[in-house]
């Protein structure tokens, strides 16, 4: 199977703090790969590394065999037209209507006439069910609608790869269901490659073809959803079942409580 993205023994540090310690992973073309892990371990950072917004300390990240950290800025900008990212907040431009937001990448990167842009934008909006909201401003949308509008914008240029940053975070069950359905359908219909970064276990198990679980700067488990469910790693099981204490401790590292309270 062909890999669209390959990360090879990559290390990334923020100041003195190690975020990733020598990790390797592959993202297969045309599949949905989920990257899961507890909050605060830098899952978004991983997407920014793939998008070339950050550079790894060592190791390599390859997009279709071409090293992303090694690219010039111009080349990187060309490559980025084939990938797009759905930000957690949606990141719609607040000074434009929904329609203009989705037309934005088309107007920036193509020389299509306004007539064709209009048709394309309305088709993308139809796909996410927001054609009726074309003339609203982003501030008038609910959280779930904003994320769907952002999804329409991220497929505007028909990218090969979509990076989803916590697409389900803070969504009510209905919009969660809508997003799960959309991600699945878009992936099948447009033959996209999707990378979904999330900590919502149940949703991911239904849409992912392959899953990586990150914790403590490393990949602690990987496999198909079935393999992950069967995993005998206590860390993976703690994560899947959402147990409060386990290999990932409940307590933030501190000196012993007797010592602190009694001052002994």
């Amino acid at each position: 199977m062909e890999n669209l993205i390959e990360i090879e023994s990559m290390t990334f540090k923020r100041g003195q703090r190690v975020i990733y310690d020598n990790i390797s992973l592959q993202i297969a073309k045309g599949k949905t790969t989920a990257i899961m892990g507890p909050s605060g371990i830098g899952k978004t950072t991983l997407l920014k590394l793939i998008g070339g917004q950050l550079r790894p300390e060592s190791g390599d990240i390859r997009f279709r065999g071409e090293s992303i950290p090694g690219m010039t800025r111009n080349r990187l900008f060309t490559v980025r037209r084939q990938m797009s990212m759905l930000f957690q907040s949606g990141a719609l431009f607040t000074d434009m209507t929904v329609f203009d937001n989705i037309a934005f990448p088309l107007r920036e990167h193509t020389r299509l006439s306004e007539k064709i842009i209009r048709i394309m934008v309305l088709m993308k909006l139809q796909a996410v069910g927001l054609r009726g909201a074309a003339d609203l401003m982003p501030s008038e949308l609910s959280g779930g609608m904003a994320r769907r509008a952002a999804l329409a914008r991220s497929i505007a240029l028909d990218p090969e790869l979509i990076l989803y940053d916590e697409p389900f975070a803070g969504q009510d069950p209905i919009s969660m269901g809508v997003l799960v359905k959309l991600i699945k359908e878009l992936n099948d219909a447009l033959n996209l490659t999707s990378v979904v970064v999330t900590h919502d276990v149940t949703e991911v198990l239904t849409i992912a073809d392959y899953i990586y679980i990150l914790a403590e700067q490393k990949i602690i488990g990987s496999g198909t959803p079935e393999q992950i469910k069967q995993s005998d790693s206590p860390l993976v099981q703690q994560f899947l079942r959402g147990e409060a204490d386990g290999p990932v401790p409940f307590h933030f590292p501190a000196q012993s409580i007797e010592h602190e309270l009694l001052g002994a």
């Binding site: 920014k48 998008g51 917004q53 900008f77 060309t78 980025r80 037209r81 990938m83 797009s84 990212m85 930000f87 957690q88 907040s89 990141a91 719609l92 431009f93 607040t94 934005f104 990448p105 920036e108 990167h109």
Partner: peptide, 14 residues
């Protein structure tokens, strides 16, 4: 703060 600058970057717009 609302990631609009980041999202421009990712859309290959400086």
């Amino acid at each position: 703060a609302t990631e609009q600058l980041s999202s421009l970057e990712m859309m290959a717009v400086d």
